[in-house]
Design a protein around this nucleic acid. Structure first.
Lengths: 225, 225
DNA sequence: AAAAAATAAACTGTCGACAGTCAGCTATCG
DNA sequence: CGATAGCTGACTGTCGACAGTTTATTTTTT
């Protein structure tokens, strides 16, 4: 019997073909194997991957949900392009969402939440000392998502995922800028402190500042590439 | 020749079968012909509508993008349920997005923007005097979307659409509460004034207050139904 | 009679095929 | 020589069918 029919989504399940194609496509897009603006050729790709067109189409729709591609009726599926200007927009949105999440999380946080955050923080710490942007990025994402969980706004994670995936299309991440990891780490430590102190205003301010800081770092790095 | 290959999305095009199925489905969901939590039976629906399953699936994926349904692998597509608690979450998100948009729009607004807003305002005015929530809703949406346009954050409208469609699943809208139309109209007039004065702080505050006010109205109406 | 197992029915995932549409090329016309 | 119209190849939209799962039903077991 189903103990909780509402929460069916979270069960173990092997991925369907569409899911496999989806991650494969995401990978191809992020690695620029398929370049921005280019069309995803369904029939060609289906031959390459050895599957029919149905899972390919399914995967494209999934990626559209994440704003990574744009499906144009009767024309095809195109990898989205992203301009510096739009990256700034996305960072602005991240800033206000993080600010909100920080404020809400600070007033709700519990001991076990703090220990989970501390784990992510230590992951970020070791990634920083090994100068490993990839792992830092993951731990960083986990840190922020944990704060969302604590904040408890159920709709926030979905929105945020779209924003981050879309921003990932941009060739440059703030974390790939030399010296950024250390700065970012320090900011997360401060956020952690503010959360421990249950200081909502301070947490909100730090979260916002953190994102706006990353935004500025990107803008600066573009001016002098 | 294509004058602007980037902006292909906006061209005249007759709807595909999937599009028709999609709006039909949306309608069925909002009218509760298919109830929240229920599965959308692809094969059954394909017989009813006289099309194959492919357009049906396509439409479901489209609705998933708008958070109106949840697609669970190998189980089917389910109409999303929405609790009062989540409606509050959605209003919170609308509040911070509107606040942000208001601040940004106030610093960028031009004369022709103001006249467009004035038009929407007068639409809302006549809808109010005729006590027509449907038309009021549309004019209201147009008003807010115009502010987004002025703010110029390209990603904002997409996010906002998801939030509003999702909130529409809830049986009650703040605008359906007796007396709300007049209150809402007054608030929009104040927002318009603040925008005219290019007062960013004031506009932001009013926008946020307006949404939070609507949220509170819903909460109150639920306590005493 | 309640729980578990086995069976049957229904449904989704995937496939290959065909038709209508679109992009690019060639030939025609001014 | 440039622009337009018609043609051609390629691709997406849609279809019906089949296979593997999931759900509902029936049978068996305790």
């Amino acid at each position: 019997m189903e103990p909780d029919a509402q929460r069916i989504s979270e069960r173990i399940e092997r991925p369907s073909l569409s899911d496999i194609v989806c991650s494969r496509l995401e990978q191809m897009i992020l690695s620029r194997e398929i370049q921005p603006g280019k069309r995803i050729n369904e029939s060609k790709l289906s031959k390459v991957l050895g599957v029919s067109r149905a899972p390919i189409r399914e995967a494209c729709r999934q990626l559209e949900k994440l704003w990574m591609v744009e499906v144009i009726p009767r024309r095809g599926t195109f990898v989205r392009e992203i301009e510096a200007e739009e990256v700034e927009d996305l960072y602005d949105l991240r800033a206000i969402l993080d600010e909100y999440a920080g404020r809400k999380a600070a007033s709700k946080i519990r001991k076990k939440d703090l220990s989970l955050l501390r784990e992510h923080l230590s992951d970020m710490e070791s990634a920083t000392s090994q100068n490993d942007p990839g792992n830092y990025f993951r731990a960083n994402l986990a840190f922020h998502q944990t704060i969302f969980d604590i904040a408890g706004n159920k709709s926030l994670p979905m929105i945020y995922e779209g924003i981050t995936k879309r921003a990932a299309l941009f060739r440059k991440s703030s974390l790939s800028i030399p010296g950024r990891l250390a700065v970012s780490l320090q900011q997360h430590k401060e956020i952690f402190e503010a959360l421990s102190a249950r200081d909502a205003a301070k947490t909100a301010e730090l979260m916002k500042g953190h994102v706006m800081n990353a935004k500025q770092a990107i803008i600066n790095s573009l001016d002098q590439p």
